[in-house]
């Protein structure tokens, strides 16, 4: 559905996206993860033809976004964070205006979408009277009007209250299930991505640092929660034995490859540590993401240091 080949983009000489390759299959919910400034929104901007890439190609449904914009975007809906509308007009008028940029849209279709997103009864009210949640529904309605095959969601839950976030997640799953849409979800909310997406790509400083399924991301290193009298001494012992790859400041250690929790327990007891808790923890997407990003964080510093010397 989406194919991105080697796109790169710099703003005033500062790279925002570096030689990104990405493929999103038809019918999947694909998560684009990354900190603020990682390059997600720039990538989406290029995908929608709003930001010009310095190089590379972007295709939607086989059509080049820049050479054949009309076809590439004809079945695409997009929602951006904090959706904005013409506040001085009604929700209905906003939908008429926005849908006209794709194709003439019958009132019956607008009615159908308004009902689907649950705005019935408020569609003739001015948008300035809408709550955040209603704006989110209106944003969804405008995205659904052209009967999209691909839905691009850029931080769709930003600014929503917990109930609104829950509702948006439920709606995304409903869209996927009932309408069979391909969804590209950009977010820095790991829980959101973990709950919704089947595949993810992680971006960091403009680069893609991971591309795979959520279960692949989770199947990496294993963390164990340790309860000892002296956590610092215990981790020192385990590090010296090469049984752990790292630890946090409180009570969690990351197992080294091919090490089991049982080996850890045995080694600690043999070395005289009092052990009163040992709980293996399932790798979360959050843990995976943070370890990935932290491991990359030192790279530019090293590069900078070497260039200074």
């Amino acid at each position: 559905m989406i194919r991105i080949d080697g796109i790169h983009k710099a703003f005033a000489g500062r790279p925002a996206v570096r030689h990104l390759d990405l493929e999103v299959q038809r019918g999947e919910i694909f998560g684009l993860l990354g900190h603020n400034g990682a390059g997600k929104s720039t990538t989406i901007g290029m995908l929608l033809g709003q930001v010009w890439p310095d190089g590379g190609t972007l295709r939607i449904g086989g059509h080049d976004v820049f050479a054949d914009r009309a076809r590439a975007l004809s079945r695409v809906g997009a929602i951006f964070e904090a959706p904005v509308f013409y506040d001085y007009l009604s929700g209905w008028r906003n939908l008429q205006i926005l849908s006209a940029y794709t194709a003439p849209t019958a009132d019956a279709r607008i009615r159908e979408v308004v009902d689907w997103v649950g705005l019935t009864g408020r569609e003739q009210s001015l948008v300035r009277t809408y709550s955040h949640g209603m704006r989110a529904r209106l944003a969804l309605a405008q995205a659904l009007l052209p009967r999209p095959e691909l839905l691009i969601l850029d931080e769709p839950t930003n600014g929503l209250d917990p109930e609104g976030i829950h509702e948006m997640r439920h709606t995304i799953l409903r869209l996927h299930r009932e309408l069979g849409l391909t969804i590209l979800l950009s977010s820095h909310l790991l829980v959101e991505v973990e709950q919704l997406c089947s595949r993810i790509a992680v971006m960091h400083r403009g680069e893609k640092v991971f591309d795979g399924t959520v279960s692949e991301a989770r199947s990496g290193t294993l963390w164990v929660r340790l309860g000892t009298d002296d956590f610092a001494a215990a981790t020192a012992t385990l590090t010296a034995a090469g049984l752990i790859a790292g630890h946090d400041r409180e009570s969690r250690v990351e197992l080294a490859p091919n090490t089991t929790p049982a080996e850890l327990a045995r080694h600690l007891v043999q070395h005289g540590h009092a052990l009163h808790e040992l709980t293996p923890e399932r790798q979360t997407l959050e843990g995976f993401y943070l370890s990935l990003v932290r491991s990359r964080a030192t790279a530019p510093a090293v590069a900078a240091a070497s260039s200074e010397s």
Binding site: A72, T102, I152
Partner: peptide, 8 residues
């Protein structure tokens, strides 16, 4: 931005 996410 919303307008230019459309094929116009």
């Amino acid at each position: 931005r919303m307008i230019l996410s459309r094929p116009i």
